[in-house]
């Protein structure tokens, strides 16, 4: 446990020692800001549902950007060998890395709070759905980070890690948009798989255990995959 937190702490600090954290936060806030505020006054409603939708979409590239180097860079530079030969388990490395990236995700989401705060000054904002929306966004982001971490642990090339996890995250997000085009038999299945449907209910203020379970199991499965990838180096 102690080791996990040490790794998480180092990872979190190294984000802010380099440019990664700042670049990702700036781009996300900029994109969300532009696309949220420009139609906001035309709609004339004090809601931030649209902001959550935009954040959920931008996370599909922000999460891979945060995670692409997690293991890949350590593998490339050889520090992985150093890390693995410390007296700790591979699982502690994976979970530590995950928590470090999840910490940055938390900071990223915190940075978007001025948006709903501004909205609340313009009218009566219902904070309940805002809170549950953030919970949903954090869960979805964590699942994406776990996917990115898994991608990062299979390669030593950060670009490969970025594009493969971006592709996966984008599919999970975009599946929801395809629903009207699908044959009725598939709709239920695809709806269950897509991030959108689970995130949607959380954004409305409904915290359903099925949605929590969905995101947590994706995260869990991805972390297991990352763990396996890390472990497989022993046998290659």
């Amino acid at each position: 446990m102690q080791n996990t937190l040490t790794i998480a702490g180092r990872q979190f600090r190294s984000y802010f020692n380099g440019p990664v954290a700042y670049i990702v936060i700036c781009i996300v806030l900029l994109l969300v800001g532009v696309f949220f505020w420009s139609p906001f006054f035309l709609m004339g409603r004090t809601t931030v549902r649209e902001m959550f939708r935009l954040l959920s979409m931008t996370l599909a590239f922000a999460a891979p950007a945060i995670t692409m180097g997690l293991i890949a860079e350590e593998r490339r530079s050889g520090t992985l060998e150093l890390l693995i030969t410390m007296p700790l388990r591979e699982s502690e490395v994976i979970v530590g890395k995950f928590l470090g990236a999840a910490g940055l995700l938390g900071v990223l989401l915190l940075c978007s709070i001025p948006y709903p705060m501004s909205v609340s000054t313009l009218g009566n904002l219902d904070w309940g759905p805002v809170l549950s929306g953030y919970v949903g966004l954090y869960l979805q982001g964590s699942a994406m980070i776990a996917i990115g971490l898994a991608a990062s642990s299979f390669t030593e090339n950060q670009l490969v890690a970025f594009f493969s996890s971006f592709f996966l995250c984008a599919i999970f997000v975009a599946l929801g948009w395809l629903l009207p085009l699908l044959p009725p038999a598939l709709v239920n299945v695809v709806q269950f798989i897509s991030f959108d449907s689970h995130f949607e209910s959380l954004g409305r203020g409904v915290i359903d255990t099925r949605d929590l379970f969905y995101f947590l199991s994706i995260a869990g499965f991805s972390l297991l995959l990352a763990f396996r990838a890390l472990e497989s180096r022993r046998w290659s």
Partner: peptide
């Protein structure tokens, strides 16, 4: 691993630290 100190080949380090 607890019993050893190890310097891997080509000395990998966290260079940003």
């Amino acid at each position: 691993r607890a019993s050893i100190g190890y310097l891997p080949e080509s000395t990998p380090l966290y260079t940003e630290m």
